[in-house]
Amino acid sequence: MSEHVPDNPRRDFLRKTLTLIPVVTVASTGLGLGASAVIAEPARSPNVPEKTDAAQYQPAFFTVDEYAFLQAAVSRLIPADELGAGALEAGAAEYIDRQMGTPYASGALWYMQGPFDADAAPELGYQLQLNPQQIYRLGIAGVLGWCRAQGNKPFHEQSAAQQDRVLAALEAGDLVLQDVPAKAFFSLLLQNTREGFFCDPVHGGNKGMVGWKQIGFPGARADFMDWAERNERYPFPPVSIRGERA
């Protein structure tokens, strides 16, 4: 193949990236995010500190109380520990709030015509009439209400061990919520938390690529011609769609 095929966007990208860092921005990813959601952060220096700017975000969908729950919950689902940053530091709460503005969160990607059978066997898949926005709203209200009814502190003020017990009870379906099956709420929360820990930073999570670095995923490198056959540790750190390097 020619070195100058006009439609080789990858090579174009790499060439431009070299000159554009640190002010690279990208177009919308097609997820319906507004322009403000995809404004690039400045690219990081080669040694990205584990400290991120996750704390500065102001939620658009969640209320103050809901967001306090969400931040506390994601920090227990994927905690900061000796391996490094957790979901909170990765910006998973911010990521989830941003996702609430996408068609996914309003159920627009799913078949949502009735009649609904909420008691269907699990083998028949998702059968609730609730979309992710509703599951969060009802699920968080249910957990906060349960904490109050037990005479406990609000979830985000509880000890880590207490929070873990609440989350485990949701996971097992032992904590019965009025308006949403606890397991459905928990599995959505866990799935979105993992997304916020491991997605490309363009979506607002995985800040500094902290999730990728911990497991050895190289992100958007996507060229392993010389590595396919080698039983060796892949030595290069991740890059992101925006051209950030960890």
Binding site: P9, R10, F13, L31, Y104, E195, F198, V202, I241, G243
Partner: peptide, 16 residues
């Protein structure tokens, strides 16, 4: 086109 397509969330997870 690269790099926009190297996006697990958009393709594998949200199933574009």
């Amino acid at each position: 086109s690269y790099p926009q397509v190297i996006d697990e969330l958009t393709y594998s997870v949200r199933k574009k």
